[in-house]
């Protein structure tokens, strides 16, 4: 069995005794095939009984043990130490708590905010069958209808995407990727009856329209769920349901229109068209700052040379969309 001595640098913080977080170093003889969780258990049982982290199923299905390994959020139980070594070379492997959640102790974070967001966005199915009549007949759901929500129902709420989300990094009130994914999963279930209500909750402030399309949630999902596809589908649904009056929806519409008309964004009038007159006035200080730094966008926007081809693309997409809806 191949073995190597591997160094780990682990984030430590016990609010009862530590004024500030610090890093602790451990050396462990690790054989090929060993997981990060096995190392954590080994350290806890043999070197430092106070090391604090969560772990449960050890099989990648319960979602307890997500931590940041060399800066990246992932499940400790399915992460191979040797794979990380290949990345970090001779540097110690860095283990830290998830981002965007309060650290309670060492690698253990408070995940209650995620649960609260699930609650306030109706993250459950509301079936058409009254409760007292349940259990007698099953809904008929086609295989294709099931496949639409199959991958989204893989989510184990490990919060890796919550930790990696760039929007969460600047706004902790943001709805977060797993809650949007859950909304997608419910709204696209043919048995659901309250999709419109949920969409209202999801599109409120700090909601659906705040996502910046950075795709970090998809990149770091331990179940490889295409979360962004779900978010895009929710946005389409918002337009289909004519819920296009919000700032976020208007913002998206402006991008859509500008690119179609000019092939590029008319930044100068973007605030006016997205935020309205009052909202734009509030942005004057920012505009002045931008002017001082010579970052003011151009007053007039020219059409790009290939605008014809852009419009052809739009026509093709609209045709495809119409075909999809009629089928």
């Amino acid at each position: 069995m191949e073995r190597r001595e591997v160094s780990f640098r682990i984030y430590r913080y016990n609010p009862q005794v530590d004024r500030h977080p610090f890093y602790d170093n451990f050396k462990v003889a690790a054989e090929r095939g060993i997981t990060v969780l096995r190392v954590l258990n080994h350290i806890k049982e043999n070197l430092e009984p106070r090391l604090t982290f969560r772990a449960y199923c050890q099989a990648g299905i319960c979602g307890s043990c997500a931590v940041r390994v060399n800066g990246v959020s992932k499940l400790a139980c399915t992460t191979q130490v040797w794979d990380e070594l290949a990345e970090s070379g001779d540097e110690p492997i860095l283990l830290e708590p998830l981002n965007n959640l309060e650290v309670i102790r060492d690698l253990l974070v408070d995940i209650d905010p995620l649960l609260e967001k699930l609650k306030s966005n109706s993250s459950w199915l509301t079936s058409s069958i009254p409760e007292q009549q349940m259990g007698h007949k099953e809904h008929i759901v086609s295989e294709t209808e099931f496949e639409v929500i199959d991958s989204a129902s893989d989510c184990i709420l490990c919060a890796s995407c919550y930790s990696e989300c760039s929007m969460m990094g600047v706004n902790r009130r943001y709805i977060s990727p797993p809650v949007l994914l859950k909304a997608f999963r419910m709204n696209n279930d043919t048995r659901e009856t309250l999709a419109g209500e949920r969409l209202k909750q999801v599109t409120a402030d700090h909601g659906l329209w705040d996502c910046t399309h950075c795709y970090r949630c998809v990149e770091h999902c331990c179940k490889k769920i295409p979360i962004m596809d779900g978010i895009h589908r929710l946005r389409e649904e918002a337009f289909e349901r004519r819920m296009s009056g919000s700032e976020g929806a208007r913002h998206a519409q402006v991008f859509f229109d500008d690119i179609r008309d000019n092939g590029r964004l008319k930044e100068m009038t973007l605030p006016l068209r997205t935020k309205g007159v009052a909202g734009s006035l509030a942005m004057i200080p920012l505009a002045l700052k931008m002017a001082i730094k010579m970052r003011t966008p151009p007053l007039f926007t020219k059409k790009i040379p290939g605008i014809k081809r852009v419009r052809e693309l739009y026509l093709r997409l609209e045709k495809l969309n119409a075909e999809r809806q009629s089928s």
């Binding site: 199915l125 007949k137 295989e143 209808e145 199959d150």
Partner: peptide, 12 residues
């Protein structure tokens, strides 16, 4: 069937 009615995504 009750679990199905409540929303469990069974294969079909």
């Amino acid at each position: 069937r009750e679990l199905e009615n409540l929303g469990a995504p069974f294969s079909r």
